[in-house]
């Protein structure tokens, strides 16, 4: 079974191994390894990707549903040496320790700031409430989102 899906602005025709293959497994099988396998239960957010701009848990999303949609993984934002504003903000504030939650955090942040470039702290917490971090205690992550928001507003 094949589906046509746009991943990080590249349109592709890709094969599903199984009708119930999750988007997480599908993306990782096609080497989008920034999509992390965490809980497989929709609880941790490590597998977060954007589907048509909305963050979802790819472990609970059927790959077949991605037909015709635009998927954004962490690989679609910035590259080494040319990081996205949000990625840069996370580095500058020290919001990355083990890094496992970071792709999910950054994608949820992108979804938030694309809709609202001046979020309150409560809005930031709500936007990231599906992304768990065992390392940082979240303080630096919230600082990173605020810094990214400021930089995005300055650019506009």
């Amino acid at each position: 079974m094949k589906i046509i899906v746009t991943i990080n602005d590249e349109k592709k025709e890709l094969t599903l191994v199984h009708p119930l293959e999750t988007l997480l497994d599908f993306l990782r099988r096609h080497y989008y390894l920034g999509v992390k396998d965490g809980c497989r239960d929709g609880q941790c957010g490590a597998c977060t990707v954007l589907v048509d701009g909305r963050p979802i848990s790819s472990c609970l999303y059927l790959a077949i549903r991605a037909e015709g949609k635009h998927i954004t993984t962490i690989e679609g934002l910035g590259k080494p040496g040319n990081l996205n504003i949000i990625q840069q903000a996370f580095l500058e504030t020290g919001a990355v320790q083990c890094g496992y939650c970071t792709p999910g955090m950054i994608l949820s942040t992108k979804a938030l700031l694309d809709k609202n470039s001046q979020p309150t702290e409560e809005e930031i917490k709500t936007a990231l409430d599906g992304n768990l971090c065992r390392c940082t205690g979240y303080v630096k992550i919230i600082e990173a989102v605020k810094l990214a928001a400021t930089k995005i507003r300055q650019e506009r």
Binding site: G42, P55, I56, S57, Y61, S108, T126
Partner: peptide, 12 residues
Amino acid sequence: LLTIGSTLNRNM
């Protein structure tokens, strides 16, 4: 509605 899961869950 905001008591249902997280933002990621509510999107699905």
